[in-house]
Every structure is written in C-alpha cells, then in structure tokens.
C-alpha cells in the first residue's frame, strides 16, 4: 500500500510544558522507529498536527533539527483542534504530517551575526533557528534576541530565556508591554520596536529574523531598516490558515503564492512584492 500524503505519522506525547496562559509545548516522539529513521527536517518548516476525531492544525516545528530524537510544537488554544490538543496528556497519540514548506537558508549565513525579533507566540518558529544556531557552535557570529510579550505571564520558553541570557554568544533583551511587568521584573518595559532601537544591533554582516503579530512586524521593520538592515537580509515566516500543507487546498494563498509551498519563509523583499493577503 502506497502511503498517502494525508496519512500522518503516529507520535507519542512524551512531555507537556505549560508555557503561558493557554500556551503549551508538546514534545513528540515517533511511535514507529522506521518513521523516525526516515524523517528529517530543516529550520523554518512546519507540519500538520492532528488529534484523531477532531482534525488537523498547522504549527511550525519549534524544536531544532539538531535534536533528532523528537520534535516539539508550541501552540495557543484557539479553535476546535487546539482546544482538544490542550486536553491531551503525556502518553497520548497524535498524528503529524510534514515537514512542509521551505527553509531558512542557514547555509548562506555562516560567519554572520543573527538578530532574532519575536513577539508573543511568534517566538516558537524562531526558537527552532535559535537552538539550531547555538547547537552549531562557532558557525555563526553573535546572536541578538529581542523578545516581547504583553506581560511576564505571556512570555514563552521562560527557562530557555534564562539559559540564553547566560550564554556569552547571546545578547538577550526581553520586554513586556507597559503594565505587564511586576515589581521584581528586571527586563525591559516597552514595545519590541522601541527595544530594538534602544539596543541597536549592528546591521553589518548581520541577518535579521522576525516573527510576531502584524503590527509588531510592521513597526519593527521600520526600525530595522533605519538601523541599515536591507529587506533581503530580513527574513520572516508567514502563517496563513492552511489545510493541506502541500499547495493544493488553496487556503493559504497570498496572490498566486502558496505560503505552504513557496513559503512560509520569505525575505522582507519578497513579502513587499506580495499582495496584502496575509
């Protein structure tokens, strides 16, 4: 029997992390060893995660391809599938198909510094790249991470943020919106674009990656451009509604481009050429 594109891998949940209000991370391991052996992916790709009888939902693979024993996904509960996923426990079996989509061209970034800009639930797609970069040691230059959320509670990967802050290769700036802090908060207070301007990463020999809510992206791009980042050195990952992941169902189309097939990774130069349908 030929394997249909829609037949998912069976994955066992081996770890559940409560990241923030309504946000969870699942660690998933392949049930069948031969599936695990055949599977590989690259930073930037995504998949269709499913719960049998509820349906499929699209998230990026939030773990790094350098960690081969598992994949992780981080999601916020919003609809039928994510609410059902949130009720799952360790040991439950999920479906996963993927990896789909294009990748961050990391091979071209050797020796370059990388700036990551993320807001809210926009960190998971970049977290995959962050760990990939860090796991590859000296391949890349200095890493700057600017991450913001509405409040301290809404920051995801809190333990990993601590770990990154201690890494000498990393400059980490975590910020919360005014009013989202508490008396013990030692990070920045303010919006992501303002924090980028304040810490002003050098644009020379540097790539920027950005993911987050549309308004944050829009204002941050202005700041990055002011700092000298050209649009073809700024990468983002788009997340339109998707059903198939393989360029057929039509849901994710932006003009004639399919986010699932032509993306989800685009340079800002490419995004500017797209109609505003994302």
């Amino acid at each position: 029997m030929e394997k249909s594109w829609y037949i998912p891998y069976k994955m066992k949940i081996t770890k559940v992390i409560n990241e923030a209000v309504n946000v969870k991370t699942f660690r998933l391991e392949f049930v069948n060893p031969e599936d695990k052996a055949a599977f590989s992916f690259k930073a930037g790709q995504f998949g269709e995660y499913s719960i049998f009888s509820e349906g499929e939902s699209t998230f990026c693979i939030a773990s790094s391809p350098t960690r081969k024993d598992y994949i992780e996904c981080t999601f916020r509960t919003a609809g039928r599938v994510t609410n059902a996923l949130a009720r799952c426990e360790e040991g439950d079996i999920l479906g996963f198909r993927g990896p789909y989509g294009n990748v961050f061209p990391m091979n071209n970034w050797a020796g370059k510094n990388i700036v990551f800009v993320a807001g809210g639930i926009g960190l998971p797609p970049l977290r995959c790249v962050i760990w990939n970069v860090l796991d590859l040691g000296d391949t890349f230059g200095h890493i700057t991470i600017v991450y913001g959320a509405k409040s301290i509670e809404e920051l995801v990967y809190k333990d990993e943020l601590k770990e990154w802050s201690k890494n000498p290769k990393v400059t980490l700036a975590v910020t919360v919106d005014p009013g989202g802090e508490n008396p013990e908060w030692k990070g920045h207070i303010g919006f992501v674009p303002d924090v980028i301007r304040k810490i002003a990463p050098k644009s020379e020999n540097t790539i920027a990656l950005i993911c987050g809510p549309p308004i944050m992206i829009k204002l941050s791009l202005t700041v990055l451009n002011e700092l000298g980042f050209s649009d073809n050195n700024i990468y983002s990952t788009l997340e339109n509604r998707m059903k198939c992941g393989i360029g057929q169902c039509g849901h994710c189309m932006v003009g004639k481009k399919y986010v699932c097939k032509d993306g989800p990774v685009f340079t800002n130069e490419e995004i500017k050429a797209l109609p505003l349908e994302y």
Partner: peptide, 18 residues
Amino acid sequence: TCFDVQDEGNTQNGQRLI
C-alpha cells in the same frame, strides 16, 4: 480545486475527510 480537511467520528473511531 480548493478543499477542507475535516474529521468525523468519536474518541473510538472515525474518518478523516477531504
């Protein structure tokens, strides 16, 4: 050609539809 992918069924059994 546009389509949706939906599940039908209950916790014991069901089917995935296009």
